[in-house]
Amino acid sequence: MFATDGGGGMYAVSHTNGYVYHLTADALTGSTFELEETGYSTAAEDLWSFLDQLHAHLAAAVEAQHAALREAHGR
């Protein structure tokens, strides 16, 4: 695991295929997760793709906030 979604879910990189998974219904046993079929989804094909997605979402959120502030100040 390397991150959380802030709502109880976590993100992890698979040591077998390098995919990033979003873990939602998990049971941690030591350092291993035992998941139900519906307890995860693929977030990205690799860590770099995940980070690129995160960057794009963050940039869009910052731009939206800047636009809202410009509108509120009449600019």
Rank of each mutant, 00 (worst) to 15 (best):
L51E: 10
L28I: 04
T42N: 10
S41M: 14
E37R: 12
F50I: 03
G7D: 11
L28V: 04
M1P: 09
R75D: 01
T24G: 03
Y40T: 00
S41N: 11
F2A: 03
S41H: 08
L54W: 11
H73F: 06
G9F: 05
A12H: 06
S14H: 06
L35G: 06
G39S: 09
A12E: 07
A43Y: 08
T24L: 05
H15E: 15
R70W: 02
L69F: 10
G8K: 07
W48Q: 13
Y40K: 09
L69T: 07
V20C: 03
M1F: 07
Y11F: 15
H15G: 11
F50R: 06
T32F: 08
H66M: 09
T4A: 12
E71C: 03
Q65K: 13
V13R: 15
V62Y: 09
L23W: 02
S41A: 15
Q53M: 10
T29H: 13
A59S: 14
A72E: 14
T24Q: 11
Y19H: 15
M10L: 14
A3C: 02
D52N: 13
E71A: 15
D52C: 07
T24C: 02
T29K: 15
W48F: 07
F33T: 02
G74P: 00
F2L: 06
D26P: 01
A12T: 09
G6E: 12
G39R: 08
L69P: 00
R75P: 00
G7L: 09
G8T: 01
